[in-house]
Design a protein around this nucleic acid. Structure first.
Lengths: 225, 225
DNA sequence: CCAAAAGTGTTGTTTATACACCCATGT
DNA sequence: ACATGGGTGTATAAACAACACTTTTGG
Protein backbone atom coordinates (compact mmCIF):
# COMPACT_ATOMS: atom_id res chain seq x y z
CA UNK A 1 0.00 0.00 0.00
CA UNK A 2 1.59 3.27 -1.01
CA UNK A 3 -1.26 5.73 -1.10
CA UNK A 4 -1.91 8.35 1.52
CA UNK A 5 -5.13 6.98 2.84
CA UNK A 6 -5.97 9.33 5.73
CA UNK A 7 -7.82 12.25 4.19
CA UNK A 8 -9.55 15.31 5.65
CA UNK A 9 -11.52 18.33 4.49
CA UNK A 10 -9.05 20.69 6.11
CA UNK A 11 -5.31 20.37 6.66
CA UNK A 12 -4.33 18.74 9.94
CA UNK A 13 -1.01 19.01 11.76
CA UNK A 14 0.70 15.96 13.18
CA UNK A 15 0.68 15.66 16.96
CA UNK A 16 3.48 14.15 19.01
CA UNK A 17 4.44 13.94 22.63
CA UNK A 18 8.00 14.45 23.81
CA UNK A 19 9.23 13.54 27.25
CA UNK A 20 11.94 15.14 29.34
CA UNK A 21 12.90 12.37 31.75
CA UNK A 22 15.05 13.55 34.64
CA UNK A 23 16.97 11.56 37.19
CA UNK A 24 19.84 12.08 39.59
CA UNK A 25 22.93 10.00 39.10
CA UNK A 26 26.41 10.56 40.41
CA UNK A 27 25.33 13.76 42.18
CA UNK A 28 24.22 15.23 38.88
CA UNK A 29 20.92 16.06 37.30
CA UNK A 30 20.71 13.94 34.18
CA UNK A 31 18.20 13.41 31.46
CA UNK A 32 17.46 10.79 28.90
CA UNK A 33 18.07 11.20 25.18
CA UNK A 34 17.46 8.95 22.21
CA UNK A 35 19.63 8.77 19.14
CA UNK A 36 17.63 9.46 16.00
CA UNK A 37 17.62 6.69 13.41
CA UNK A 38 16.02 8.70 10.64
CA UNK A 39 16.18 12.12 9.05
CA UNK A 40 15.91 14.89 9.92
CA UNK A 41 18.73 15.17 12.45
CA UNK A 42 19.63 11.55 11.73
CA UNK A 43 22.24 10.32 14.18
CA UNK A 44 21.60 13.30 16.46
CA UNK A 45 20.19 13.26 19.97
CA UNK A 46 16.57 14.03 20.72
CA UNK A 47 13.98 13.67 23.44
CA UNK A 48 12.08 10.38 23.56
CA UNK A 49 8.61 10.70 22.13
CA UNK A 50 6.52 10.05 19.09
CA UNK A 51 3.26 10.36 17.27
CA UNK A 52 -0.11 10.24 18.97
CA UNK A 53 -2.35 7.29 18.21
CA UNK A 54 -5.90 8.28 17.34
CA UNK A 55 -7.46 6.42 20.25
CA UNK A 56 -5.08 7.21 23.09
CA UNK A 57 -4.98 10.09 25.54
CA UNK A 58 -2.02 12.43 25.42
CA UNK A 59 -0.46 11.25 28.66
CA UNK A 60 -0.87 7.63 27.56
CA UNK A 61 1.00 8.42 24.41
CA UNK A 62 3.88 9.87 26.42
CA UNK A 63 3.94 6.81 28.68
CA UNK A 64 3.79 4.41 25.76
CA UNK A 65 6.57 6.09 23.83
CA UNK A 66 8.76 6.20 26.87
CA UNK A 67 8.21 2.53 27.57
CA UNK A 68 8.78 1.55 23.95
CA UNK A 69 12.05 3.41 23.78
CA UNK A 70 13.46 2.67 27.22
CA UNK A 71 11.42 -0.01 28.97
CA UNK A 72 10.68 2.47 31.78
CA UNK A 73 7.15 2.66 33.14
CA UNK A 74 5.15 3.66 36.21
CA UNK A 75 6.79 6.98 36.77
CA UNK A 76 5.69 10.46 37.68
CA UNK A 77 4.62 12.33 34.55
CA UNK A 78 3.23 15.82 34.17
CA UNK A 79 2.27 17.90 31.18
CA UNK A 80 4.77 20.68 30.62
CA UNK A 81 3.81 22.85 27.65
CA UNK A 82 2.76 22.54 24.05
CA UNK A 83 5.22 23.61 21.39
CA UNK A 84 3.80 24.49 18.03
CA UNK A 85 5.88 26.95 16.06
CA UNK A 86 4.99 26.66 12.41
CA UNK A 87 8.50 25.65 11.32
CA UNK A 88 9.67 23.56 14.26
CA UNK A 89 9.77 20.39 12.17
CA UNK A 90 11.07 20.68 8.60
CA UNK A 91 8.92 17.80 7.29
CA UNK A 92 5.41 18.89 8.11
CA UNK A 93 3.54 20.88 10.69
CA UNK A 94 4.02 19.15 14.04
CA UNK A 95 2.53 20.10 17.37
CA UNK A 96 4.42 18.62 20.29
CA UNK A 97 2.76 18.23 23.65
CA UNK A 98 5.73 18.02 25.99
CA UNK A 99 5.72 16.14 29.28
CA UNK A 100 8.34 15.93 31.94
CA UNK A 101 8.97 12.93 34.08
CA UNK A 102 11.07 12.01 37.10
CA UNK A 103 12.51 8.69 38.05
CA UNK A 104 14.23 7.48 41.19
CA UNK A 105 17.93 6.79 40.92
CA UNK A 106 17.43 3.12 41.77
CA UNK A 107 15.20 2.54 38.75
CA UNK A 108 17.14 4.02 35.91
CA UNK A 109 18.36 0.91 34.17
CA UNK A 110 17.35 1.06 30.54
CA UNK A 111 16.45 -1.94 28.49
CA UNK A 112 19.33 -3.01 26.25
CA UNK A 113 19.65 -0.87 23.14
CA UNK A 114 17.81 -2.53 20.31
CA UNK A 115 18.22 -1.99 16.61
CA UNK A 116 15.48 0.54 16.85
CA UNK A 117 16.64 2.65 19.75
CA UNK A 118 19.79 3.81 21.42
CA UNK A 119 19.14 5.67 24.64
CA UNK A 120 21.54 7.30 27.07
CA UNK A 121 21.69 9.53 30.12
CA UNK A 122 23.33 12.94 29.84
CA UNK A 123 24.23 15.43 32.55
CA UNK A 124 21.95 18.44 32.26
CA UNK A 125 24.89 20.82 32.13
CA UNK A 126 26.68 18.84 29.42
CA UNK A 127 24.01 18.18 26.87
CA UNK A 128 24.88 17.62 23.23
CA UNK A 129 23.18 19.51 20.42
CA UNK A 130 19.55 18.53 20.32
CA UNK A 131 17.22 17.98 17.38
CA UNK A 132 14.30 20.30 16.56
CA UNK A 133 13.46 22.74 19.36
CA UNK A 134 14.23 20.16 22.00
CA UNK A 135 16.75 22.39 23.70
CA UNK A 136 13.96 24.87 24.37
CA UNK A 137 11.75 22.11 25.72
CA UNK A 138 14.51 20.95 28.05
CA UNK A 139 15.05 24.49 29.34
CA UNK A 140 11.39 24.87 30.12
CA UNK A 141 11.24 21.52 31.88
CA UNK A 142 14.23 22.47 34.00
CA UNK A 143 12.67 25.79 34.97
CA UNK A 144 9.52 24.00 36.04
CA UNK A 145 11.43 21.40 38.01
CA UNK A 146 13.40 24.02 39.91
CA UNK A 147 10.25 26.00 40.66
CA UNK A 148 8.33 22.96 41.84
CA UNK A 149 11.05 21.92 44.25
CA UNK A 150 10.09 24.81 46.50
CA UNK A 151 6.37 24.43 46.63
CA UNK A 152 5.66 20.76 46.01
CA UNK A 153 6.84 17.33 47.05
CA UNK A 154 8.22 16.63 43.60
CA UNK A 155 11.73 15.96 44.96
CA UNK A 156 10.54 12.70 46.50
CA UNK A 157 10.01 11.30 43.03
CA UNK A 158 13.78 11.12 42.75
CA UNK A 159 14.18 9.15 45.96
CA UNK A 160 14.24 5.40 46.52
CA UNK A 161 11.76 4.01 49.06
CA UNK A 162 14.14 4.65 51.92
CA UNK A 163 16.66 7.44 52.12
CA UNK A 164 18.64 9.48 54.58
CA UNK A 165 18.04 13.18 55.16
CA UNK A 166 21.48 13.91 53.77
CA UNK A 167 20.58 12.16 50.56
CA UNK A 168 17.38 14.17 50.34
CA UNK A 169 19.26 17.39 51.00
CA UNK A 170 21.64 16.40 48.24
CA UNK A 171 18.76 16.24 45.79
CA UNK A 172 17.72 19.78 46.64
CA UNK A 173 21.29 21.00 46.44
CA UNK A 174 21.98 19.33 43.12
CA UNK A 175 18.87 20.61 41.39
CA UNK A 176 19.15 24.11 42.80
CA UNK A 177 22.90 24.11 42.29
CA UNK A 178 23.60 25.65 45.68
CA UNK A 179 24.60 24.46 49.14
CA UNK A 180 22.04 24.43 51.92
CA UNK A 181 22.56 24.60 55.65
CA UNK A 182 22.13 21.16 57.14
CA UNK A 183 20.28 22.20 60.30
CA UNK A 184 17.95 24.56 58.50
CA UNK A 185 17.15 22.01 55.82
CA UNK A 186 16.27 19.38 58.41
CA UNK A 187 14.09 21.77 60.34
CA UNK A 188 12.31 22.77 57.15
CA UNK A 189 11.62 19.29 55.88
CA UNK A 190 10.61 17.91 59.29
CA UNK A 191 8.28 20.85 59.99
CA UNK A 192 6.36 19.92 56.85
CA UNK A 193 5.66 16.49 58.23
CA UNK A 194 6.35 14.70 54.97
CA UNK A 195 8.81 12.05 56.10
CA UNK A 196 9.01 9.58 58.92
CA UNK A 197 11.91 7.65 60.39
CA UNK A 198 11.70 3.92 59.66
CA UNK A 199 13.83 2.97 62.66
CA UNK A 200 16.37 1.43 60.31
CA UNK A 201 19.85 2.73 59.73
CA UNK A 202 22.27 2.84 56.89
CA UNK A 203 25.87 1.93 57.72
CA UNK A 204 27.90 3.38 54.96
CA UNK A 205 31.51 4.09 55.70
CA UNK A 206 33.67 4.80 58.67
CA UNK A 207 31.29 7.16 60.37
CA UNK A 208 28.11 7.30 62.32
CA UNK A 209 25.21 5.46 60.65
CA UNK A 210 22.33 7.53 59.26
CA UNK A 211 18.65 7.06 60.03
CA UNK A 212 16.54 5.92 57.11
CA UNK A 213 13.34 7.81 56.38
CA UNK A 214 10.47 7.24 54.01
CA UNK A 215 8.02 9.58 52.36
CA UNK A 216 4.65 9.40 54.10
CA UNK A 217 2.47 9.69 51.00
CA UNK A 218 4.44 8.07 48.20
CA UNK A 219 3.19 8.43 44.65
CA UNK A 220 1.33 11.66 45.18
CA UNK A 221 2.95 14.98 44.42
CA UNK A 222 1.39 17.62 46.64
CA UNK A 223 1.58 21.37 46.83
CA UNK A 224 3.21 22.40 50.09
CA UNK A 225 3.63 25.77 51.80
CA UNK B 1 -15.20 20.49 -4.77
CA UNK B 2 -16.37 17.75 -2.52
CA UNK B 3 -13.39 15.51 -2.09
CA UNK B 4 -11.24 15.34 1.01
CA UNK B 5 -8.08 16.69 -0.43
CA UNK B 6 -5.71 16.78 2.55
CA UNK B 7 -4.19 13.34 2.78
CA UNK B 8 -1.53 11.81 5.01
CA UNK B 9 0.28 8.52 5.51
CA UNK B 10 -0.85 8.34 9.12
CA UNK B 11 -4.01 9.58 10.76
CA UNK B 12 -3.79 13.14 12.11
CA UNK B 13 -5.96 14.74 14.79
CA UNK B 14 -7.42 18.19 14.35
CA UNK B 15 -5.88 20.93 16.49
CA UNK B 16 -7.78 23.87 17.91
CA UNK B 17 -7.14 26.60 20.41
CA UNK B 18 -9.74 27.61 22.98
CA UNK B 19 -9.56 30.78 25.03
CA UNK B 20 -10.84 31.46 28.52
CA UNK B 21 -11.17 35.24 28.59
CA UNK B 22 -11.68 36.67 32.07
CA UNK B 23 -12.67 40.11 33.13
CA UNK B 24 -14.11 41.82 36.19
CA UNK B 25 -17.45 43.53 35.82
CA UNK B 26 -19.90 44.59 38.47
CA UNK B 27 -17.63 43.24 41.23
CA UNK B 28 -17.76 39.79 39.69
CA UNK B 29 -15.34 37.60 37.86
CA UNK B 30 -16.82 37.03 34.43
CA UNK B 31 -15.83 35.18 31.32
CA UNK B 32 -16.70 35.26 27.70
CA UNK B 33 -18.71 32.60 25.91
CA UNK B 34 -19.80 32.16 22.32
CA UNK B 35 -23.04 30.62 21.19
CA UNK B 36 -22.43 27.70 18.88
CA UNK B 37 -23.98 28.00 15.41
CA UNK B 38 -23.36 24.41 14.35
CA UNK B 39 -23.59 20.90 15.72
CA UNK B 40 -22.52 19.40 17.97
CA UNK B 41 -23.91 21.38 20.90
CA UNK B 42 -25.67 23.68 18.42
CA UNK B 43 -27.15 26.66 20.23
CA UNK B 44 -25.14 25.87 23.35
CA UNK B 45 -22.43 27.99 24.93
CA UNK B 46 -18.76 27.32 24.40
CA UNK B 47 -15.38 28.96 24.74
CA UNK B 48 -14.20 31.10 21.84
CA UNK B 49 -11.64 29.31 19.71
CA UNK B 50 -11.16 27.40 16.53
CA UNK B 51 -8.95 25.42 14.23
CA UNK B 52 -5.27 26.06 13.80
CA UNK B 53 -4.08 27.31 10.43
CA UNK B 54 -1.12 25.40 9.09
CA UNK B 55 1.18 28.42 8.97
CA UNK B 56 0.36 30.15 12.25
CA UNK B 57 1.80 29.70 15.72
CA UNK B 58 -0.49 28.44 18.45
CA UNK B 59 -0.73 31.72 20.32
CA UNK B 60 -1.44 33.56 17.06
CA UNK B 61 -4.30 31.20 16.42
CA UNK B 62 -5.78 31.97 19.82
CA UNK B 63 -5.42 35.71 19.23
CA UNK B 64 -6.92 35.49 15.77
CA UNK B 65 -9.92 33.46 16.85
CA UNK B 66 -10.59 35.79 19.72
CA UNK B 67 -10.43 38.82 17.49
CA UNK B 68 -12.63 37.24 14.83
CA UNK B 69 -15.29 36.31 17.31
CA UNK B 70 -15.24 39.38 19.55
CA UNK B 71 -13.14 42.15 18.01
CA UNK B 72 -10.90 42.08 21.09
CA UNK B 73 -7.14 42.26 20.59
CA UNK B 74 -3.91 43.23 22.32
CA UNK B 75 -4.57 41.47 25.55
CA UNK B 76 -2.59 39.35 27.96
CA UNK B 77 -2.64 35.73 26.81
CA UNK B 78 -0.94 32.69 28.30
CA UNK B 79 -0.97 29.03 27.43
CA UNK B 80 -2.96 27.05 29.98
CA UNK B 81 -2.96 23.34 29.18
CA UNK B 82 -3.58 20.99 26.31
CA UNK B 83 -6.69 18.87 26.40
CA UNK B 84 -6.68 15.75 24.31
CA UNK B 85 -8.95 13.02 25.60
CA UNK B 86 -9.72 10.64 22.78
CA UNK B 87 -13.48 11.26 22.92
CA UNK B 88 -13.66 14.93 23.82
CA UNK B 89 -15.18 15.85 20.47
CA UNK B 90 -17.78 13.49 18.99
CA UNK B 91 -16.90 14.34 15.38
CA UNK B 92 -13.25 13.51 15.13
CA UNK B 93 -10.13 13.45 17.26
CA UNK B 94 -9.48 17.02 18.38
CA UNK B 95 -6.58 18.29 20.47
CA UNK B 96 -7.32 21.62 22.09
CA UNK B 97 -4.49 23.86 23.20
CA UNK B 98 -6.20 26.08 25.76
CA UNK B 99 -5.14 29.63 26.54
CA UNK B 100 -6.40 32.01 29.13
CA UNK B 101 -6.60 35.72 28.75
CA UNK B 102 -7.37 38.74 30.89
CA UNK B 103 -8.84 42.04 29.90
CA UNK B 104 -9.28 45.30 31.77
CA UNK B 105 -12.80 46.24 32.69
CA UNK B 106 -12.65 49.40 30.58
CA UNK B 107 -11.99 47.46 27.37
CA UNK B 108 -14.66 44.80 27.40
CA UNK B 109 -17.02 46.12 24.76
CA UNK B 110 -17.61 43.43 22.18
CA UNK B 111 -18.17 44.10 18.54
CA UNK B 112 -21.85 43.88 17.63
CA UNK B 113 -23.07 40.31 17.26
CA UNK B 114 -22.86 39.32 13.62
CA UNK B 115 -24.69 36.56 11.85
CA UNK B 116 -21.71 34.39 12.56
CA UNK B 117 -21.21 34.97 16.27
CA UNK B 118 -23.11 35.77 19.38
CA UNK B 119 -20.85 36.43 22.35
CA UNK B 120 -21.71 37.28 25.94
CA UNK B 121 -20.18 37.71 29.38
CA UNK B 122 -21.17 35.32 32.17
CA UNK B 123 -20.39 35.44 35.88
CA UNK B 124 -17.94 32.69 36.73
CA UNK B 125 -20.22 31.36 39.46
CA UNK B 126 -23.30 31.30 37.23
CA UNK B 127 -22.10 29.64 34.08
CA UNK B 128 -24.49 27.78 31.82
CA UNK B 129 -23.82 24.25 30.60
CA UNK B 130 -20.79 24.30 28.36
CA UNK B 131 -20.05 22.34 25.21
CA UNK B 132 -17.39 19.60 25.02
CA UNK B 133 -15.04 19.56 28.02
CA UNK B 134 -15.07 23.32 28.25
CA UNK B 135 -16.21 23.23 31.85
CA UNK B 136 -13.02 21.41 32.74
CA UNK B 137 -10.95 23.94 30.81
CA UNK B 138 -12.65 26.79 32.64
CA UNK B 139 -11.98 25.18 36.02
CA UNK B 140 -8.32 24.79 35.24
CA UNK B 141 -8.02 28.37 34.03
CA UNK B 142 -9.64 29.59 37.23
CA UNK B 143 -7.26 27.56 39.36
CA UNK B 144 -4.33 29.04 37.53
CA UNK B 145 -5.66 32.56 37.81
CA UNK B 146 -6.15 32.24 41.57
CA UNK B 147 -2.67 30.76 42.02
CA UNK B 148 -1.00 33.44 39.92
CA UNK B 149 -2.61 36.26 41.88
CA UNK B 150 -0.29 35.49 44.77
CA UNK B 151 3.02 35.23 43.03
CA UNK B 152 2.73 37.38 39.92
CA UNK B 153 1.52 40.77 38.79
CA UNK B 154 -1.29 39.23 36.79
CA UNK B 155 -3.95 41.20 38.67
CA UNK B 156 -2.84 44.39 36.97
CA UNK B 157 -4.07 43.02 33.67
CA UNK B 158 -7.58 43.61 34.97
CA UNK B 159 -6.93 47.24 35.84
CA UNK B 160 -7.41 50.36 33.73
CA UNK B 161 -4.38 52.65 33.35
CA UNK B 162 -5.18 54.48 36.56
CA UNK B 163 -6.84 53.01 39.61
CA UNK B 164 -7.20 53.45 43.33
CA UNK B 165 -5.75 51.05 45.85
CA UNK B 166 -9.27 50.17 46.97
CA UNK B 167 -10.13 49.17 43.42
CA UNK B 168 -7.03 47.02 43.24
CA UNK B 169 -7.86 45.41 46.58
CA UNK B 170 -11.30 44.71 45.22
CA UNK B 171 -9.82 42.72 42.35
CA UNK B 172 -7.90 40.53 44.77
CA UNK B 173 -10.94 40.09 46.97
CA UNK B 174 -13.24 39.24 44.12
CA UNK B 175 -10.99 36.63 42.56
CA UNK B 176 -10.01 35.06 45.86
CA UNK B 177 -13.57 35.35 47.14
CA UNK B 178 -12.48 36.59 50.56
CA UNK B 179 -12.10 39.89 52.35
CA UNK B 180 -8.64 41.32 52.95
CA UNK B 181 -7.46 43.74 55.60
CA UNK B 182 -7.07 47.18 54.09
CA UNK B 183 -3.89 48.16 55.94
CA UNK B 184 -2.15 44.87 55.36
CA UNK B 185 -3.06 44.86 51.69
CA UNK B 186 -1.68 48.34 51.19
CA UNK B 187 1.52 47.51 53.03
CA UNK B 188 1.92 44.38 50.92
CA UNK B 189 1.37 45.97 47.55
CA UNK B 190 3.45 49.08 48.33
CA UNK B 191 6.34 47.02 49.71
CA UNK B 192 6.55 45.29 46.33
CA UNK B 193 7.12 48.60 44.63
CA UNK B 194 4.82 47.87 41.73
CA UNK B 195 2.64 50.95 41.74
CA UNK B 196 3.21 54.65 41.94
CA UNK B 197 0.90 57.54 42.82
CA UNK B 198 0.12 59.73 39.84
CA UNK B 199 -0.65 62.77 41.96
CA UNK B 200 -4.20 62.78 40.63
CA UNK B 201 -7.29 62.00 42.62
CA UNK B 202 -10.62 60.44 41.98
CA UNK B 203 -13.61 62.25 43.48
CA UNK B 204 -16.34 59.74 43.54
CA UNK B 205 -19.09 60.35 46.03
CA UNK B 206 -19.61 62.15 49.25
CA UNK B 207 -16.40 61.06 50.86
CA UNK B 208 -12.69 61.68 50.83
CA UNK B 209 -11.16 61.45 47.33
CA UNK B 210 -8.81 58.58 46.56
CA UNK B 211 -5.32 58.83 45.11
CA UNK B 212 -4.89 57.40 41.64
CA UNK B 213 -2.02 54.99 41.06
CA UNK B 214 -0.58 53.38 37.99
CA UNK B 215 1.31 50.15 37.45
CA UNK B 216 5.02 50.87 36.97
CA UNK B 217 5.69 48.23 34.32
CA UNK B 218 2.47 47.88 32.35
CA UNK B 219 2.15 45.06 29.87
CA UNK B 220 4.62 42.75 31.55
CA UNK B 221 3.45 40.09 33.95
CA UNK B 222 6.26 39.36 36.41
CA UNK B 223 6.82 36.81 39.10
CA UNK B 224 6.92 38.48 42.48
CA UNK B 225 7.78 37.22 45.97
C1' DC C 1 -23.78 67.42 60.87
C1' DC C 2 -24.04 63.01 58.78
C1' DA C 3 -22.78 59.22 55.81
C1' DA C 4 -19.33 57.10 53.21
C1' DA C 5 -15.04 55.58 51.66
C1' DA C 6 -9.87 56.95 52.21
C1' DG C 7 -6.11 56.70 54.80
C1' DT C 8 -2.82 55.40 58.52
C1' DG C 9 0.73 52.24 63.02
C1' DT C 10 1.65 49.11 66.48
C1' DT C 11 2.06 44.68 68.50
C1' DG C 12 2.52 39.73 68.63
C1' DT C 13 3.46 35.53 66.00
C1' DT C 14 5.46 32.84 62.67
C1' DT C 15 9.04 31.81 59.52
C1' DA C 16 13.67 32.17 57.68
C1' DT C 17 18.59 32.76 58.30
C1' DA C 18 23.18 32.45 60.25
C1' DC C 19 26.23 29.86 62.66
C1' DA C 20 29.73 25.51 65.47
C1' DC C 21 30.28 21.66 67.96
C1' DC C 22 29.70 16.68 69.54
C1' DC C 23 28.52 11.71 68.05
C1' DA C 24 29.09 7.05 66.25
C1' DT C 25 31.48 4.33 63.31
C1' DG C 26 35.38 1.74 60.43
C1' DT C 27 40.03 1.41 59.67
C1' DA D 1 43.51 7.88 67.37
C1' DC D 2 41.79 9.80 63.46
C1' DA D 3 38.92 10.72 59.55
C1' DT D 4 34.27 10.82 57.99
C1' DG D 5 29.69 12.06 57.55
C1' DG D 6 25.48 12.16 61.11
C1' DG D 7 23.19 14.75 64.17
C1' DT D 8 21.67 18.82 67.11
C1' DG D 9 20.03 24.43 69.27
C1' DT D 10 19.97 29.31 69.75
C1' DA D 11 19.75 34.09 68.53
C1' DT D 12 18.46 37.63 65.08
C1' DA D 13 15.86 39.36 61.33
C1' DA D 14 12.03 39.45 58.27
C1' DA D 15 7.40 38.57 56.96
C1' DC D 16 2.78 38.14 58.15
C1' DA D 17 -1.65 38.72 60.87
C1' DA D 18 -4.72 41.01 63.87
C1' DC D 19 -6.77 45.04 65.04
C1' DA D 20 -9.65 50.80 65.33
C1' DC D 21 -9.67 55.32 64.70
C1' DT D 22 -9.12 59.90 62.07
C1' DT D 23 -9.62 62.41 57.54
C1' DT D 24 -11.96 64.45 53.71
C1' DT D 25 -15.57 65.07 51.01
C1' DG D 26 -20.75 65.79 49.12
C1' DG D 27 -25.17 66.47 50.25
Amino acid sequence: MNTKQFCYWHPHPAVTTDIVLFTLRAEKLQLLLIRRRNPPFQGGWALPGGFLDMDEDLADCAKRELEEETGIKNIYLEQLYTFGKAKRDPRERVISVAYYALIASDRITLKPASDATEAAWFAFDELPELAFDHREIVEKAHERLVAKLDYSTIAFQFMPKQFTLSELQNVYETIRAEALDKRNFRKWILARNLVEATGLERRNGSHRPAQLFHFKRPGRVEIIR
